[in-house]
Design a protein around this nucleic acid. Structure first.
Lengths: 101, 101
DNA sequence: TTCATATATCGTAATATCGCGATATAAACA
DNA sequence: TGTTTATATCGCGATATTACGATATATGAA
């Protein structure tokens, strides 16, 4: 894991809303049960936006931060952007922290 | 672990200099072998300051941030302030992240 | 094509963080 | 007492982050 990415990941984790989003995405069936689209696609940005209560643009920026840090992935299906955790990266981060912190 | 402290800890970890300091304090005999005082006391602030290359006031603020987050502890001996890791807290943080992140 | 929906980007204001020098405080020493 | 050493705190400018509304872009539907 590059130092730049480690820095980006920890900066991304340093905001409570972004941690909330990661937490919700861990069990989408628990937090986004009402999504029309199958949760196997991920959770669409609008759902996350409404759950935070913040503005659309703010949440879009938070999601972009998480994605730049490699902590989430997104796929575009039609007009929707579905987000899911990048658990491999998250596990790598945890392993790295356990080792080096 | 309270949410406030989790937030403080992750914010503290989101700066590379503070992560460096934590890393150095993990093996003080490796990074501060030239300290006049026994390393069992911890590493004194001035040593850390010179290792970072930053100003005294800046490093003092970083150490205060780490301490508020509970990631390091300090003891005052004479005119020196010795810092060491709070490994119990760090382990608790890692456990919490492994569980909830 | 026009309209509605979903998301990203832009511009901006408010706030937080960072780093510095200057100064305050406290301890040790002459 | 005054002086030096070690650290903390203050004040400030520079930069980064956060949040917002407005607008742009893209997709899909009418």
């Amino acid at each position: 894991m590059s130092t730049v990415t480690l820095d980006e990941m920890l900066k991304a984790l340093s905001h409570p809303v972004r941690r909330d989003i990661l937490h919700w995405l861990k069990q989408p069936e628990l937090y986004f049960a009402d999504q029309e689209h199958p949760l196997s696609l991920g959770v669409c940005a609008g759902k996350i936006e409404r759950k935070t209560g913040l503005s659309q643009s703010t949440v879009s920026a938070h999601l972009a931060t998480l994605q730049r840090a490699g902590l989430v992935q997104s796929k575009k299906v039609g007009q929707w952007h579905f987000f899911c955790r990048n658990d491999a990266q998250i596990q790598q981060l945890l392993a790295h922290l356990s080792q080096d912190l």
